[in-house]
């Protein structure tokens, strides 16, 4: 390297005036066939990246990212469950000596030891050997940690009922904004008997399922209204048979005109849309109620 006296610079900067050819560095440390990083190796890397990206985009397009109902601190029925990558810790804290009175042990000491050991692995395993079978203690401890993490996650996942959760707590983003026809002859019966639980737009709430786009027949709806289903008790509906028929027709097609053609009932929907926008959720889970009895039908 030419330095010191006699060196010429560009202006008053520190950039040398005479540039040397930027010779590629040789990679002689490891003998064998080497390859230029740019463009040869990077091209292969990016091809892998492209395949990965395509798969990733297909995943995002195929599976909508879930959104649950807006946070409601008073919802006592909600069973919290963290994202999958925290499940191991969540599950670990269920053990007797990791939770309860021993929470410090389970929440701080044990994870602290595990992650601390991970952080300091190069200093806990300082020998020069790199091959796994030459450093059995480090490798077996790591294996233990990995297996424990997998096991805890598996245990937690197998206990959690993701299908029911997404039905009960999830919000169907693609749900069609329903505009309930309050002029429908069955609406009065709905309002009197069902609205307090199933919501003003049939959207359901909490553990009460939504009734939007129900796949049940009118006869089934009539039967449920009278005899109940799942956790819904019998005898909720009290009214005449005619009202029952109208109610069932209304639930089957809440936006329709119903038997009698009374004016255009599209106006009041827009008035309600303020409340509906945030709550016309769960329409995918119209059959949620049946989960206990008839097995849930696939929603997607």
């Amino acid at each position: 390297m030419h330095r010191g006296k006699g060196m010429k610079f560009v202006g008053d900067s520190r950039v040398p005036a005479q540039q040397k050819a930027n010779l590629p560095k040789d990679y002689s440390e490891y003998p064998g066939r080497t390859e230029a990083f740019w463009p040869n190796f990077l091209l292969k890397e990016w091809l892998v990246g492209s395949v990965f990206l395509i798969g990733f985009l297909i995943l995002t397009a195929a599976h909508a990212s879930p959104l649950e109902q807006q946070a409601d601190p008073t919802n006592a029925a909600y069973i919290p469950l963290p994202d999958w990558y925290f499940l191991f810790l969540y599950e670990f804290l269920k053990y007797q000596y990791a939770g309860g009175d021993y929470i410090v042990l389970g929440a701080i000491v044990m994870p602290g030891l595990a992650f601390g050991a991970l952080l300091l692995a190069p200093f806990l395993d300082p020998g020069p050997e790199r091959r796994p079978h030459k450093r059995p203690i480090a490798v077996s401890l790591m294996m233990l940690g990995v297996i424990a993490t997998f096991w805890l996650t598996y245990e937690s996942v197998s206990e959690a009922d993701y299908e029911t959760r997404s039905e009960e707590y999830g919000v169907d983003i693609e749900a069609v904004e329903s505009e309930v026809n309050t002029d429908h002859p069955g609406y009065a019966a709905y309002e009197a008997n069902c609205l307090s639980c199933h919501g003003d737009a049939l959207q359901g709430q909490g553990s009460y399922p939504a009734l939007i786009d129900t796949e049940r027949s009118i006869e089934e709806i009539k039967d449920i209204a009278v005899n109940g289903v799942g956790s819904m008790p019998a005898g909720i509906f009290n009214g005449s048979d005619e009202e029952l028929q109208q109610l069932a027709e209304f639930i089957k097609d809440p936006t329709g005109e119903g038997g009698s053609a009374e004016g255009s009932g599209s106006e009041e929907g827009s008035g309600e849309s303020g409340s509906e926008e945030g709550s016309s959720e769960e329409s995918g889970s119209t059959e949620g109620e049946s989960g206990s009895e008839e097995g849930s039908e696939s929603q997607e």
Binding site: G11, V15, N22, K25, Y27, Y30, R33, E35, F37, N40
Partner: peptide, 20 residues
Amino acid sequence: ERVDITPLWRDIADHEVPEH
């Protein structure tokens, strides 16, 4: 000419990747 940027990207681009 003014900033001497060639070594910057050369340093990233021009190295050999070993076979393994």
